[in-house]
Amino acid sequence: LVMQGAEMQLLDADQAMNELGLEEHQLRFTSTVVIEYPGEVEQTVDRIYQYVKGKLKDFPVQMSADQSITVADSVLIKVSGDDDEAEKGVLVSWSYQDEDIGSYLLKLLKMGIPST
């Protein structure tokens, strides 16, 4: 509900933010988990990509040329580590508007990824 002078208007939050000239505070999270997955980094990324795609059928899951995975509007997944070491770091980053998906993916990847 927005009051301007003697006028009252019922607006949705999106419109109200615009009318009032308010800028949303951008909130972003980045968490890193360590997983065990033998194989090259590239294979690990591919495996995570397939796994996440299978789990989140209602959201766009994309692989970029730089070996990062994007999910929905703001979620980013990156893998770091050595090809000959099973231990890999998986970075999951998301903005507040994708909190549900981001926190879900972090929990999912924390449990490890199945090898096939």
């Binding site: 951008q26 972003r28 999270f29 980045t30 968490s31 988990v33 972090l106």
Partner: peptide, 12 residues
Amino acid sequence: EGSTHIICEGNE
């Protein structure tokens, strides 16, 4: 000013 970024290990 208009943003915050929380960077942590996997402690949910």
